[in-house]
Structures are given as C-alpha cells and as structure tokens.
C-alpha cells in the first residue's frame, strides 16, 4: 500500500526548461495552520506561454496559483517555505511592495466578481489605484482592454451602466478586461469558466488563446478538455505535490507517470 509520502518524485519534462522562466517556483511549501497543503513544488513558468494546472479538487493547484501573487496573505495562519521568484526578485522578499507585485500580475477568479460600479469604472480601477486619473488615458485603456476581452462591441454604448447588469459570461470577460487593464506581465486564471455555459466558455477560451505571446498565462482548470485546448504546458498536481509537468500534447497522449495517465483518462478524480 502506498501512502502519499510514497508518491513518485515530480517529473519535469525537459521542455519546461526550454525557455527562460518568467516565474520560477522553487522548493515551495505551504501550510494552512498545521496542515501542509503544498509539498516541495519545483516548477518554472515560461514567459508568454500558457500553462495549465490540473488535478483533482483539493490538490493545491489554486493555492499555488494564489501564492504567486501572494493573495494567500489575506488568509490567517498561512506559512510558506521555499521561494517563488519573478524575474530576479523573490515574491516573498521581506520588504517587497506586495501591491506593486500584484499590479504586475492580473488575476481572474472562479466566480466573476465585478465591482458594484459602472463598466467604465470597473476597468479603470487598476489604473485609478495607481493614481492615473487622466481622462484620455482612462478612455484609451477602457477601449483597449474591452476590445482585448471581446466585450467592446457589446458594451460600448453602456459604459456608464452598472457592471452588475451584464450576463454571467459578459461579467467574466469584464473581469478579464479589468485584469489586463493595468498591463500586467502575468495573468492568473483560477477556473475562469467553471460557472459559465459552453458558449461563454468557448469565448473565453478564444480570448486565452489570443493572449498567447502577449502575457504569461497560468490557468487552473477542472476541465481536461479545456487544458488540452488552450495550454502549451500542463502541470498535474495530486495531494499537494506536483506529479508531472510538460508539453500539453505529450501529457495528454503519452504521460510518463502512471498517475497522470489515470487522471487524464478519467480513471479517478
């Protein structure tokens, strides 16, 4: 009988190191209180590629994602070990300005969470908190990001209306527009389609594909099909450990680890 401690060591395909890493996760451990949620994660996230995190519920993929922009700081009793580096600097550096880090990393959440303001103000929010209030700059940013999020044509006549009047799919695209309005380098997406219908999901997947080459995208997903459709690289997590990471096609067609094969072929999870 195998216990979690007997899991095979993480297997990183050489393609994961083919390019310079934008973010590199090094020996990363995380505890909620006394229970450990992440175990010795080592994973480079390549620049301008789309990386997806897959794995069964509770395997720590969302936790790892939220560790990258230190959103876990909001939760009491979280301790971390190891390091996540973005460029030359550590994300967990003692005197790091967390807000400026988060400005470089956009985030889209599982449940669309537009602010209770107008569509226009929602997009402006990341700019306004950085002290940008110039009308022309804001107008331009709103149009650019809404176009990037394929929402411009639908909302251009009602920018002053409440964002809460939009449909679920539109709200999620608005959140994407908001996340990229501040021109971040990295975009973190935490199951962005799990609450959406298939058509909205397709639209958002299209958006993600368009972002390849412009942003470094990390997407957590429950849908294997989605991971295979949108991502260049896939990382499979299980019980807080990284089991295997490599090119998506390779993982889905011929994974090296038995556990990955079983998960992807739907034999558990």
């Amino acid at each position: 009988m195998l216990s979690p401690a007997d899991l095979p060591p993480s297997f990183l395909h050489p393609e994961c190191r083919a390019k310079p890493a934008q973010i590199s996760i090094q020996d990363f451990n995380l505890w909620y209180g006394k229970s450990q949620a992440l175990f010795n994660i080592n994973l480079p996230i390549l620049q301008h590629e789309i990386t997806s995190f897959i794995g069964p519920s509770g395997c720590g993929k969302s936790t790892l994602l939220r560790s990258i922009n230190r959103l876990n700081d909001l939760i009491d009793n979280v301790t971390v070990g190891g390091d996540i580096r973005m460029g030359e600097r550590s994300v967990y550096e003692r005197h790091l300005d967390v807000t400026s880090l988060r400005k470089r990393i956009g985030m889209v959440f599982q449940k669309s969470n537009p602010f209770p303001m107008s569509i226009y103000e929602n997009i402006c929010y990341p700019l306004r908190i950085s002290g940008i209030n110039q009308r022309s700059t804001l107008d331009e940013a709103v149009e650019t990001s809404l176009r990037s999020a394929a929402l411009w044509e639908e909302v251009k006549d009602r920018l002053k209306r409440s964002a809460l009047d939009l449909s679920g799919g539109q709200q999620q695209r608005l959140c994407i527009a908001r996340a990229i309005a501040g021109n971040p380098e990295v975009l973190l997406m935490d199951e962005p389609c799990s609450a959406l219908d298939p058509i909205s999901t397709a639209k958002i997947e299209e958006l993600i594909l368009e972002m390849r080459g412009r942003f470094t995208v990390v997407i957590v997903t429950h849908s294997m099909a989605q991971a295979s459709r949108v991502s260049d690289l896939t990382a499979f997590f299980y019980l807080g450990r990284l089991i295997e990471a490599g090119p998506t096609q390779r993982l889905f067609e011929n994974a090296d680890c038995k556990a990955t094969q079983d998960y992807i072929s739907g034999r558990f999870g």
Binding site: N69, L71, L74, T99, S100, L101, R102, K103, R104, G106, M107, F109, K111, N113, P114, F115, P116, Y125, P126, R128, I129, S130, C175, R178, A179, G182
Partner: peptide, 20 residues
Amino acid sequence: SLREASYGCGATRMQTLWNI
C-alpha cells in the same frame, strides 16, 4: 470575492476599504 478582486488588482488595504 470583491475584496480579493480589489487586492488582485494591486489595491492597498485602505484603497480596498475606501473604494470597495
């Protein structure tokens, strides 16, 4: 989720409190 959205945009605690 609203607070997280604001923090995720890089807002400080006071900005989140005041604006959201």
